[in-house]
C-alpha cells in the first residue's frame, strides 16, 4: 500500500496542476513540445524522470501500471519505477500489456496492439529532433514555427549519399498530423508504424530537457522519407529462438565466446505469453511446452 509522508503519486498537487496544464496543451497541439517546470525526482536524469512526472500527473487509484525498459518488464529501470508507483500511489501493477491502463516505456512499444483507453508514456532523453542539426533552442523553435524541416531532410539525404539508404535506425523522426516533426524517443524504427493511428493516447516526457508532448489517438504519424527511398522497418532473418514469433523486434543474446548467439523477443511479456500458449522456438528449452508462463530471456 502507499507510504505515508508523501502526497498521492509523490508529486504535490500544485506541481501536478502545472504538469496537467502542459499535458492539455500537448494534446491540443500534437507533436509540439510544451515547456514545463520539470521537478527533481528521486532518481537520476536519464532514468525516466520526465516519464515518471507525466505518469504521476495522470495516474489514479483505479489504474493498472505496466513499466517496460527496452521491452522488458524486469530490468532495473522498469522494476524501480514500477515499485515507485506501487509505493507512492498504491496502484496495481502488471506485466501484461492487455491488462494495463497506463504503460510507461523506455525505448519500445509493446508488440501486442494497444487499445482504446490505454495511455502510453514514453521516457524521452532529447525531445528536439533537430537538436543535433541545430544546437540553438531559439533557432529550432523558429524552425518549428515556420514548419521548416529542410534540415532534417538534408540529414536523411546525407544518409543516403553516404550509405545508400537511410541509416537512422532508432529515434527515427516522424511528422505528426501533417505538422510538427517529432522525436518518437529512441524506439527502434521498427516501432514507428505502431504510432500511426494508434487507438491509445501517447504522451512523452523529457525531464532533463523539461518538455512534454503528445500524440492523440487516431492521429497520423508519418516517418519522414523520400519517394525513391520509402521508409522501411528492420527485418529479421529468423524468428524468436524462444517462442518462434515472426515480425517482432528481436534482441541479440551472445551465448559464448565462440560466436554463439541467439535472437529473442525484446518484448518479454509477449514472448512469455506466446510460450505459455505452447509456441516454441528453435532454442526453446526442452519441456518449454509443458511449463507455460516460465520467465526467461534465454540467458
Amino acid at each position: 500500500m502507499s507510504t505515508t509522508g508523501y502526497n498521492f503519486a509523490y508529486l504535490d498537487e500544485q506541481t501536478k496542476r502545472m504538469i496537467r496544464r502542459a499535458i492539455l496543451k500537448a494534446i491540443a497541439i500534437p507533436g509540439y513540445q510544451v515547456p514545463f517546470a520539470s521537478r527533481e525526482m528521486p532518481m537520476p536524469y536519464g532514468w525516466g524522470t520526465g516519464g515518471v512526472q507525466v505518469t504521476a500527473a495522470i495516474i489514479g487509484h483505479d489504474d493498472v501500471l505496466k513499466v517496460i525498459d527496452q521491452g522488458s518488464d524486469d530490468t532495473t529501470n522498469a522494476v524501480s519505477i514500477r515499485k515507485f508507483f506501487a509505493k507512492t500511489a498504491g496502484v496495481a501493477t502488471t506485466t501484461r500489456t492487455r491488462e494495463a491502463t497506463i504503460i510507461q516505456t523506455r525505448h519500445r512499444i509493446p508488440e501486442a496492439p494497444l487499445r482504446e483507453g490505454q495511455i502510453i508514456v514514453y521516457q524521452v532523453p532529447i525531445p528536439e529532433p533537430l537538436r543535433f542539426l541545430e544546437p540553438r533552442e531559439t533557432e529550432t523553435r523558429r524552425l518549428h514555427a515556420l514548419n521548416d524541416y529542410g534540415l532534417m531532410h538534408v540529414k536523411l539525404y546525407e544518409d543516403i549519399a553516404r550509405h545508400g539508404h537511410i541509416a537512422t535506425t532508432y529515434a527515427y523522426p516522424v511528422q505528426v498530423a501533417g505538422r510538427y516533426v517529432m522525436d518518437p524517443s529512441p524506439i527502434p524504427k521498427f516501432d514507428n508504424p505502431k504510432m500511426h493511428m494508434s487507438p491509445a493516447l501517447q504522451l512523452f516526457g523529457a525531464g532533463r530537457e523539461k518538455r512534454i508532448y503528445a500524440v492523440p489517438p487516431h492521429t497520423p504519424v508519418k516517418s519522414l522519407d523520400f519517394d525513391d527511398h520509402p521508409f522501411a522497418v528492420q527485418h529479421f532473418d529468423k524468428p524468436c529462438a524462444l517462442c518462434g514469433a515472426e515480425r517482432v523486434y528481436l534482441d541479440e543474446v551472445v551465448l559464448d565466446d565462440r560466436g554463439g548467439r541467439m535472437f529473442v523477443c525484446s518484448d518479454t511479456d509477449y514472448c512469455e505469453e506466446r510460450r505459455a500458449q505452447g509456441h516454441a522456438g528453435a532454442m526453446a528449452p526442452d519441456g518449454a511446452r509443458a511449463q507455460p508462463g516460465e520467465a526467461g530471456h534465454g540467458r
Partner: peptide
C-alpha cells in the same frame, strides 16, 4: 480528497480533449 478528485476530473478532461 483533493488528490483523488482532481485526478479523476483531470483524466476526464484528458479523455475528452484527446477524443
Amino acid at each position: 480528497d483533493v488528490a483523488k478528485s482532481a485526478q479523476a476530473i483531470f483524466r476526464t478532461l484528458v479523455d475528452v480533449l484527446a477524443r
